[in-house]
Amino acid sequence: MRLNHKSIAIDDKSTIGEARRAALQVAQALGFDEARRSDIGIACTEAATNVLLHATRGELLLCPFVAGEHFWLDIFALDEGPGIRDIGRAMEDGFSSIGTPGQGLGAIARLSDESSLYSSPDKGTVYWCRFKSAGSSSAAAVGLVNVPIKGESVCGDNYFLKINAVQSLYMMVDGLGHGAGAAEAADEAVAVVSQSVGEPTSEILTRVHNALKKTRGAAMSVAVVDHERRIVTYAGVGNISCNLLHGMTSRSLVSQNGTLGAVLPRVPQEYTYPIEPNTILQMFSDGLVSKASLSGYPGLQNRHPALAAGILYRDFNRRRDDATVLVAKIGGPLA
């Protein structure tokens, strides 16, 4: 099931209600019960209110994810305001300068299953929280943002994840252009990859290429992580960017020129890379500028990868195309 990620501009009081209503609609579509929908509504209201109060304007993202019977909803509150100088005070449960229903960011942390905040003086704040279905694994150390270009209701990018303790697969695809035609190509690629788990990455590319001949085509990258052998096997065609981050070191993974569905490299190549403990996999579509990097954010690599995904989206979004970001911790056993 594909549920669209939503972006709501927060720039006056009416947009707070708009964001809350959108969050409740997504929560209901995911299958959250009434009590959890109420929690989500409070969290969304509080997060949007804090943006408006402290930064005057910003953006709220609603990012659902579904994997079989399990699902989650990520809420991001993004701004480029003055930042939070006293984070400890802001996170106190019960603290609110205007008496909103949640009474402070600490209440969002209490209501949600996971949350985190990153704030820099004069550069703004990103606040993230996650609401998970009952039984969802806490091992999903991954962040995802998948937002269509303004004016489109569906994103022409898509992704597929298959995560387990032995081997995990991460895939991102960008249908050519944007809108319904791009989404059709991207969705077809996801369908093929979901049926090809366990195959060599080069073979997966070939299968997707053949399936996409009836569509406008796409760029795609797929990375398979062997957690026991600590290696990544990677193959890509087109302009999906993929990097491995470890400390101060960033390594770009090699993609070949071409367009799946139209021009496949004569010999699709797959590459193998070793990974160290605490390695981060970063993938993003060309909706972000090519220089997108976490290097200018001290300590961010040690935080939840969803927080990193939100910051990359906020700071490197070109705003001229669909934008998709995937950040995952891959350099250790999945606890």
Rank of each mutant, 00 (worst) to 15 (best):
H70C: 13
Y170Q: 03
G102I: 04
A182V: 14
S136D: 14
A182G: 09
E184I: 13
V126N: 00
A107L: 04
F71N: 03
G135R: 05
A67Y: 10
E184S: 12
A107W: 07
F65K: 09
L176E: 07
F65Q: 13
V166G: 09
D93T: 14
A77W: 01
M91C: 12
N164P: 07
A77Q: 02
G81W: 04
G143D: 00
D86I: 12
E184L: 15
G99D: 08
S116P: 05
R130P: 02
N146Q: 09
A183T: 10
G181K: 13
H70E: 15
V126T: 07
A165Q: 12
S115E: 02
K132W: 08
A141E: 12
A140G: 10
K162Q: 14
D113G: 00
D86R: 12
G124V: 03
S120E: 15
S136K: 15
V142K: 00
L62A: 05
V147M: 04
E80Q: 10
P121A: 08
M171H: 06
L144N: 04
R85G: 11
A180N: 11
L161R: 01
C63Y: 01
L111Y: 03
P121V: 06
I87N: 11
A139R: 14
I75H: 05
G156S: 05
Q103M: 15
G124K: 03
E184M: 13
G156D: 01
G102V: 05
E69R: 14
D174Q: 09
G135M: 02
G94E: 08
P64S: 08
S112K: 00
P121Q: 13
P64R: 02
A109I: 11
A134H: 10
A139D: 12
G104P: 03
I108A: 00
D86N: 15
S137D: 06
I98K: 07
R110H: 08
I149P: 08
N164R: 03
G143E: 00
L105N: 00
F71M: 09
Y170E: 04
A107S: 15
A182F: 10
T125A: 05
A67S: 15
G83H: 12
G181N: 13
